[in-house]
């Protein structure tokens, strides 16, 4: 069996999908960890505001997650479209 050009393109698309997802997951992980840590500190300082802090933290985390989601979309495009 001979390796054609299309096979190489497919192989590099799969490789690119893996790299995109792996590198793209670093930033949101760090960011969400920071947000959760700061929220924990704030809840420790004022426990009566825990509900509001948790809600704000979740919204902030979901927003900071978006770069990871972009890399997921790019990875899906590489997997299923290329």
């Amino acid at each position: 069996m001979e390796i054609m050009g299309a096979d190489i393109v497919r192989a590099f698309a799969l490789l690119g999908a893996g790299i995109a997802m792996g590198l793209g997951a670093i930033g949101p992980g760090i960011g969400e960890g920071f947000a959760a840590g700061k929220a924990c500190e704030a809840i420790g300082r004022s426990p009566q505001e825990a509900g509001l802090l948790t809600r704000t933290m979740l919204v902030g985390q979901a927003v900071s997650e978006s770069t990871g989601i972009y890399s997921l979309v790019v990875a899906l495009l590489l997997l299923f479209v290329v």
């Binding site: 979901a62 997650e65 978006s66 989601i69 997921l72 979309v73 899906l76």
Partner: peptide, 15 residues
């Protein structure tokens, strides 16, 4: 950003 965030989350979850 707003539309891809929702789409990516739901699509990724279902996949």
């Amino acid at each position: 950003s707003i539309s891809f965030r929702l789409f990516g989350n739901i699509m990724g979850g279902s996949i």
